[in-house]
Simulated assay, not measured.
Amino acid sequence: MTVFKEQSEMPPKPQRPGAEDREMLRQAALLTRDLHRPSPAIYWSDCFGSAAIGYAALLGAMVSHHAALTTALVLLSILTLYRAVLFIHEITHLDHRLLPGFRIAWNIGVGAPLLLPSFLYEGIHAVHHSRAHYGTERDPEYLPLAHMRPWTLPLFTLAALAMPFLLLLRFGILGPLSWAVPPLRRLIVERFSALEVNPAYRRPAPQGDFALRWRWQEAAASMAAIALIATTALGIVPLRAFGLYCAVLAGVALLNQTRTLVAHLWENEGGQLSLTDQYRDSTNVPPAFPGMLWAPVGLRFHALHHLLPRLPYHSLRHAHRRLAAALPRDSAYGEANYPSLTMLLRRLTRATMGRHSSRSARAGSARATRHA
């Protein structure tokens, strides 16, 4: 049985992992040692079945003349393509010898058409999982959102709506141009080649085999972006169809940005954390519905993923059940389990509001002291 925190309960401050935490790590590895092999049948059918449904729904919306049907098809396309897109997360963790061809097929069938090639995330996500970098200013996927001003949250979320136009600009115009302009190329690589949260992050130039994968993935996405821009400009693709494509991309980005808001507690202010403290700063939302819609491909078990990052997504639910049943109710494992997306959003909002109120109170007190 999963034990959830009470909504009013605040988690303890991160501590050095003690004997209980070391035991949790040992038990987690022991209880899940038979769950680490990815199932090719599940990966291929889930990912590309979702993509096929998403593309079919998008095409259906483009030819539909009924507002209600168009809306329903757009929503279906967003949900299914969002699921297919999130396999980019699995690609960063997979042992590709166990799933040969999957990364190439994903980039051709999902990454390039949706302007989200996997190089945007590969390498970046590994830094986020690093014990030395997680939650620090060097982490590309972390900001101390719980300690920032309240307006940061809606701005952070709604910025996702600009994603289609930024991707078209990146791959359709600036990317191809940058190959002939070295200073622009350096800027593109450092600042516009990562799916990041931290705006201060600067990406290093790719090396070795990864540089080769980067080049062909970028070329494929650029060809897709240029073709879309050109055919729309020439009137071959109707503006309505172009708009629906952008709406679906924006919907995918908005869903993912909302999920990102609750993937962590965002309470670390730059200090280095242990693996167990990374776990405590992350979240599990075990209920399958509606979690399977807003956090598919295992991402509703994000804290468990930080504990056991090599587990394939289809094993996370089984692993969670085993750990929740085997570990004591008051163990560190239960500290990261939450009942819903809504509860986590309220918690994060209260944290920013409380922080802002405290700052305002201190500022008012200082002003009163100066005028006394």
Rank of each mutant, 00 (worst) to 15 (best):
H96G: 06
L307R: 04
L184I: 13
A146G: 08
R310Y: 12
I236C: 01
I88G: 15
G271V: 06
P296N: 01
Y313I: 06
V262M: 10
A324W: 06
A105Y: 08
H371L: 12
A326E: 08
P182A: 15
D139R: 10
A288P: 11
A146E: 09
S340D: 10
R329Y: 14
L153R: 15
V248L: 12
D139N: 00
W151V: 13
L316S: 08
L75H: 04
A247Y: 02
W179S: 12
I91T: 11
S222D: 01
P154D: 12
L265S: 08
R347M: 11
L25N: 07
T342K: 13
W294T: 01
T276I: 05
G49V: 05
E267H: 14
Y55W: 15
D46G: 01
A28D: 03
R362A: 14
D95R: 10
Q217I: 00
A41P: 01
R149K: 14
R149F: 12
Y43S: 15
S360G: 12
R83Q: 11
Q217K: 04
F102V: 00
C246H: 01
Q7K: 12
L59D: 05
V181P: 06
N107L: 09
L177D: 02
R317G: 06
E9F: 01
V74F: 03
V237G: 07
P328N: 00
F165Q: 13
T342H: 14
A146N: 07
R191H: 11
W151Y: 15
D34V: 04
T231N: 03
A233Y: 06
P117T: 04
A112L: 00
D21S: 14
E269H: 08
E269N: 14
H129M: 02
N337I: 09
T136V: 01
R26C: 14
R213L: 12
A220I: 05
W216R: 14
L249Q: 15
I173S: 04
I226R: 01
V127N: 00
S360E: 12
I236Q: 13
Q7T: 07
T92G: 15
C47T: 10
W44D: 12
F301E: 04
A227E: 00
A361M: 10
A326T: 11
A126T: 06
P328S: 04
V197H: 01
A68W: 03
E190V: 03
R321L: 02
L167Q: 09
R310I: 05
M62N: 13
Y43T: 15
A68K: 09
I104E: 12
A180W: 08
R138K: 15
L316K: 03
D95H: 11
P206W: 05
A288F: 14
A84D: 07
Y245V: 02
P286C: 05
A146P: 12
G109W: 09
A105R: 09
V189L: 04
A126M: 05
Y338T: 13
Y55E: 02
W106D: 06
A241F: 09
L228M: 03
A336F: 06
A326D: 14
S315N: 11
A220W: 00
R37M: 13
A241M: 03
L254A: 03
P199H: 07
A56T: 07
E122K: 03
H66Q: 08
G49C: 07
M343Y: 00
F242P: 08
E122Q: 03
L344D: 14
A146T: 10
I53T: 06
